[in-house]
Design a binder for these strands. Sequence first.
DNA 1: GTATTTTATTTACCTAGGTAAATAATAATT
DNA 2: AATTATTATTTACCTAGGTAAATAAAATAC
Lengths: 139, 139
Amino acid sequence: MNPLFHEIFQTTRDITNKLNSCLKEHDLYSSQWTILYTINKNGPMSLTDIWKYLKVEAPTVTRTVARLEQLDWIVRTEGEDRREKIVSFSEEGKKKFPAVLASVLRFEEGLIETFNDEEQQQLLELICKLKGRTNHWEI
Amino acid sequence: MNPLFHEIFQTTRDITNKLNSCLKEHDLYSSQWTILYTINKNGPMSLTDIWKYLKVEAPTVTRTVARLEQLDWIVRTEGEDRREKIVSFSEEGKKKFPAVLASVLRFEEGLIETFNDEEQQQLLELICKLKGRTNHWEI
DNA sequence: GTATTTTATTTACCTAGGTAAATAATAATT
DNA sequence: AATTATTATTTACCTAGGTAAATAAAATAC
């Protein structure tokens, strides 16, 4: 395997693992955090809103949202269209979110602090260019 | 979440998914491919050799190697140290490997073809720098 | 107005990563 | 030599991604 891809995969694993240990004190995992962050940013969302936004398949979101409901971070309510379920913060979740956000922002800051704006921009552009290339591989 | 991290995660998911569909014609998944590639490069290896090389936990390798044995890609033999199991290609696996390698090289080439050497080098360096930062986050 | 199609979600099951603890063989201590 | 510690692998179980198919509600077609 091209060492570039090897490094990219390993780096994302590393980041996910470290993010998970940073989230441990809040009894959360990274994918759970991602959903909380998303509904905090966008307000109440249906499952479809969420998986389209995160570009992940629907069953993955169903599972994580179900777990978040068990843990009393969010509630699922029926939408006007009775097929859809709307995900929003529970009272508990609303209270606890800011502390998690603070932890994660500190973590991200630690990752990126030695990157200047130009380097961040370069990395973002190169990654997006690489992602764009994946579309040229349709079976 | 910082859009940079979001893009990196999404890009690796995209690449893995596309690699999986490229491997489908060979009845393989990406992690299985990674192990085949590794023993092709390094020759017969113990499980510990493999997980240290790939920087993945041991149980993950145990599982994937067991699956590869079921599928008759590899064989596990007892080492001189009777605790360790040595992983090497089966006869079938040895025969089938080159075709898979060719597919994957084509796939990787398609991903990277619009990157010149400087861009590849830049991306590799930025990713490695980012990975290095994860070590500064010890709980 | 009924039948069909589409859409939203879920269920079942696969790979793929992780941790913690069990087991068995080897190495080290005493 | 017997005990203890280390090492290699495995088992059990968690999150986290995927696909395929089931279900139920809504939208569309006829």
